[in-house]
């Protein structure tokens, strides 16, 4: 039984989400092989070889992966699975926008179902995944010969270092020519990445404006070394870019401490943060649903409470 993990990387290094996926793969109990498909991805391949629990790293290095297009990546994964002649029982990728984009394509070509965002593994063919915005947990059993799975990264620890896997080059697929990247605009931030942060300070519509969002929350986040998040309302109102959004349709986070400031706590927002270890809510509305999940709630005007909190920590 071989488990193939499709690495998310930026060529130079692995993304953190890949390490969580390796941990999930290790739980299945087989050989864990990482596929690094990139252009000039030597750094990422070396990093993959050092991950604990990995038995082999397959590297497909070619310009056809420069854009990380779903079409070319999916073809490569399918090639690797077919070349293994039935040895690969599972294909895993993180349930990030990367994994969600590529893996269903792989599953369709292999004519198997895909299992999305698993949060637990019961056995090699039985998995637990949230449905209805995290309001129910479904246990599903797959009868397919290859299980194609995306992994909710916050549900599995990151794999450590200490591995010494062999690195093997594999032939890259031909370019599908179906898709061309024409621009990429990444949000630059010195703060920790939202998905991996230990502390998250998140703001909602209660902040009132983009200016207030930055003025009120940034000093607190900086002092705590926290990442900044937002509710959909704050994103739609233009306070912050969309990649700050926490929720069913944004990022799923599970930090040690989640500070919800001026967020009412709609079902869709709770879906993205209710597995946080400690939740603190600051809201002036004592009836806000966020207080039903908050370990510590402070009913107060955020414009007074947050600066007080900032100066006190």
């Amino acid at each position: 039984m071989t488990i193939l993990v499709v690495a998310e990387h930026d060529n130079a290094s692995l993304k953190g989400a890949t390490l969580n996926t390796v941990s999930a793969a290790a739980k299945l109990g087989g050989d864990v092989v990482i596929l690094v498909a990139g252009a000039g991805a030597g750094g990422a391949a070396e990093a993959a070889a050092r991950v604990a629990g990995v038995s082999k790293v397959l590297v497909a290095d070619s310009a056809v992966f420069a854009d990380q297009s779903a079409e070319n990546l999916a073809s490569q994964v399918v090639e690797v699975v077919k070349a293994a002649g039935g040895a690969i029982s599972h294909v895993l990728a993180p349930a990030t926008t990367f994994g969600k984009n590529v893996l269903p394509r792989v599953a369709a070509v292999l004519d198997v179902a895909q299992i999305s965002e698993i949060v637990a593994i019961e056995s090699a063919d039985t998995f637990v995944r949230p449905i209805y915005a995290g309001n129910a947990l479904a246990t599903v059993k797959s009868a397919d010969p290859v299980k194609v799975i995306t992994v909710r990264t916050t549900a599995f620890e990151a794999a450590g270092e200490g591995g010494a896997a062999a690195v093997e080059q594999v032939a890259a697929v031909a370019d599908s020519g179906l898709s061309r990247l024409t621009g990429r605009e990444l949000t630059k931030s010195a703060r920790p990445e939202l998905g991996a942060a230990k502390i998250i300070v998140s703001g909602g519509r209660g902040l009132g404006s983009s200016e207030n969002y930055h003025k009120v929350l940034e000093p607190l986040a900086d002092k705590l070394g926290a990442a900044l998040g937002a509710s959909r309302a704050a994103v739609d109102a233009g306070y912050v870019p969309n990649d700050y959004q926490v929720g069913q349709t944004g990022k799923i986070v599970a930090p040690q401490l989640y500070l919800a400031v001026g967020i009412s706590g709609a079902i869709q927002h709770l879906a993205g943060m209710k597995d946080s270890k400690v939740i603190v809510a600051i809201n002036k509305d004592p009836e806000a649903p966020i207080f039903q999940v908050a370990d510590y709630g402070l009913v107060a005007d955020l414009f007074e409470a947050v600066p007080q909190l900032t100066s006190a920590v």
């Binding site: 198997v112 179902a113 299992i115 039985t126 949230p130 449905i131 995290g134 309001n135 129910a136 947990l137 479904a138 246990t139 599903v140 059993k141 797959s142 009868a143 397919d144 209710k274 939740i279 004592p286 207080f291 039903q292 999940v293 908050a294 370990d295 510590y296 709630g297 402070l298 009913v299 107060a300 409470a305 007080q308 909190l309 006190a312």
Partner: peptide, 23 residues
């Protein structure tokens, strides 16, 4: 269907927290 749903359960409820008086 390729996947069989064995069961659907409610997620573990979070215990109700407390309200604090001030910062």
């Amino acid at each position: 269907p390729r996947l069989t749903t064995l069961k659907v359960v409610e997620p573990a409820a979070r215990g109700a927290g407390i309200k604090v008086a001030d910062v």
